[in-house]
C-alpha cells in the first residue's frame, strides 16, 4: 500500500518520505503537504526513484 510518512522533529522541521510511490507520482502526492506547510529546504530522489523512472520509460518505448 502506498503511504506518506511525515516526521516532525523537535526543532520544528518536517521530513516527508514516500514509500511505494513511483517517479513523478511521488512529487504530485506530496505537493499538498509541501504547499501547506512551508518552504522546501531539501528534496532528494532516492535510487528507487530513478530505477522506476527508467523502468517506466522502457515500458513506454515498447
Amino acid at each position: 500500500m502506498k503511504a506518506i510518512r511525515l516526521t516532525f522533529d523537535v526543532n520544528g522541521e518536517l521530513m516527508i518520505e514516500m514509500p511505494g510511490f513511483a517517479g513523478k507520482a511521488c512529487h504530485e502526492a506530496s505537493q499538498f503537504i509541501e504547499k501547506a506547510l512551508g518552504e522546501v529546504a531539501i528534496k532528494k530522489p532516492t535510487a528507487q526513484y530513478y530505477q522506476r523512472e527508467a523502468s517506466e520509460r522502457l515500458k513506454q518505448s515498447h
Binding site: M15, M18, P19, F21, C26, G38, E39, A41, Q48
Partner: peptide, 13 residues
C-alpha cells in the same frame, strides 16, 4: 521510498 523532502515550516494559518 522514492523521495525524501525536508521542509522548514512556516505559520500561515
Amino acid at each position: 521510498m522514492s523521495h525524501i523532502t525536508e521542509i522548514k515550516i512556516k505559520v500561515t494559518d
